Computed example of a mutant assay.
Amino acid sequence: MQKSDFYYELPDALIAQAPLAERSAARMLIVDGRQGTWQDARICDLPDLLQPGDLLVLNDTRVLPARLQARKATGGAVELLLDRLVDAREGWFLAKSSKALRPGMRLHLPGAVATVEEKDGMEVRLSLSADAQWLPILEAEGSMPLPPYIRRAPEASDRERYQTIYAAHPGAVAAPTAGLHFDAQLLDALAARGVERTFVTLHVGAGTFLPVRSDDITEHPMHAETMEVSATTVAAVAAAKARGKRVIAVGTTACRALETAAQDGTLRPYTGETRLFIYPGKTFQVIDGLLTNFHLPESTLLMLVCAFAGMECMLAAYRHAVAEGYRFFSYGDAMLISPQVGQR
């Protein structure tokens, strides 16, 4: 299966550069993978589309202001983008500088010095001295890591809007964007409908924006992300299944967390890393539905939704979305997807 199989034409004008005034005002394309059909709707229709007892699984990671400016001892500028924290004092970063960084080099940050401990491809592992920690530095000095297709500088409002309202655990460098559509009013309406919810945590890494470079998609090395599926969530999923209701992942990150924790066919509590790459031919173990935004051409996330609902159906639905002027990517519109025959 080739990367080019997942290409579609997207006018630049459809790439959302800012959020809508209201989170739940977005459009939503409902895609039926079994029938190969779709229909236009809105996010605010979600309570009417779900059934009492259905379970939404949301990713409660919190986006860090993960982009930092540093300087080498020589004065040269270095731009750092956090990928993932190892602990309070160590983290992996994508680094951009005029010359490559090497182990042993020191980088000067506001109020701290970081040492390059290790280099792995495009990433470096940086450690701070014993009297410094990454989280306070990022919160004080970092800027929100808006995706590269948002062609403007981060604004103060992005600290709130590029974040779900239920974000709880800091560690992500990109938002779980399907969750950006939920405001308190929508969550209240879903609860009144009898739709239940539970949470997983997957800290979205900078690697989510890296392109698939190999023509054969099975040769693509998936980036590592840290995650947790708790015993509480496992129990909530089991209860929904027992009452014959759907488990709907809010976002590809929630989907990957659940499917990682069920790799042996049974969902179990899991804490650790995931490098799970889901593409057509892979079988889903847990989810019965997926709420997600529109994804970049030839991306691993587009491959995931094609695996869930079928390539022909999904790519045709994307062409419809382009023709109808849907807004794409992080600050864009959404899709509610049911699986193709054979998935759930």
Rank of each mutant, 00 (worst) to 15 (best):
G244V: 10
T271W: 14
A140V: 03
L138A: 04
A321E: 06
R42W: 10
E160I: 15
S230A: 08
D216Y: 01
R27C: 02
G104K: 07
A21M: 11
K72H: 13
L146H: 04
R213C: 05
E228K: 13
D183H: 07
G75T: 10
D216A: 11
A240R: 06
A321Y: 02
A238K: 15
K245S: 10
G76Y: 05
A114H: 04
A100H: 15
V86I: 15
I137T: 02
L301P: 08
Q51T: 13
A100L: 13
G342K: 03
V212I: 13
V247M: 01
T61G: 01
P297G: 04
A175W: 03
A132E: 09
E123W: 08
K241R: 15
V173T: 13
I337K: 03
P145D: 07
M227Q: 09
V237W: 01
I217N: 00
Y270W: 13
H181W: 06
V341R: 14
V204N: 00
V57K: 03
L82G: 03
G33S: 06
L109R: 09
A323K: 14
G207V: 01
L68E: 08
L128C: 08
A132P: 05
R161L: 04
A238V: 10
M144V: 14
P136C: 06
R275K: 14
D215L: 11
D12I: 06
D32F: 03
T201M: 11
A114N: 07
T61K: 09
T260K: 06
K241Y: 11
T271M: 12
N59Y: 07
E228H: 13
E312R: 13
G289W: 03
Q263A: 14
M227Y: 11
L210T: 12
E141I: 04
S127Y: 08
A77G: 11
R268P: 05
E160T: 14
R67W: 02
A100R: 15
I278V: 14
S97K: 09
R34A: 12
F294L: 09
L10Q: 10
A25Q: 10
L336Y: 06
L290E: 02
I248E: 08
L267N: 02
E312W: 10
Q2L: 13
W38H: 12
A172N: 05
A13K: 13
E160P: 10
M335Q: 12
G53M: 09
T292A: 06
T226G: 10
P154D: 03
P103W: 05
A21T: 15
I248R: 06
S214V: 11
V116R: 00
T232C: 10
A100V: 13
A239R: 15
R213Q: 11
Q185H: 14
G272A: 05
I278M: 02
R327H: 08
D288L: 08
G272K: 11
L56K: 10
A41R: 14
H203T: 07
V200N: 03
G91P: 09
M227E: 05
I15T: 13
M311K: 13
A140G: 02
Y270K: 07
F284T: 00
L138S: 01
T300I: 00
M122K: 14
N59A: 07
A132D: 09
T233H: 09
K72C: 10
P47R: 02
P176Q: 06
S24I: 05
T274S: 15
I150H: 09
K245F: 05
P11V: 00
A95N: 04
D60W: 12
I248V: 15
R71P: 03
L304D: 03
A231H: 10
V286L: 05
V322K: 09
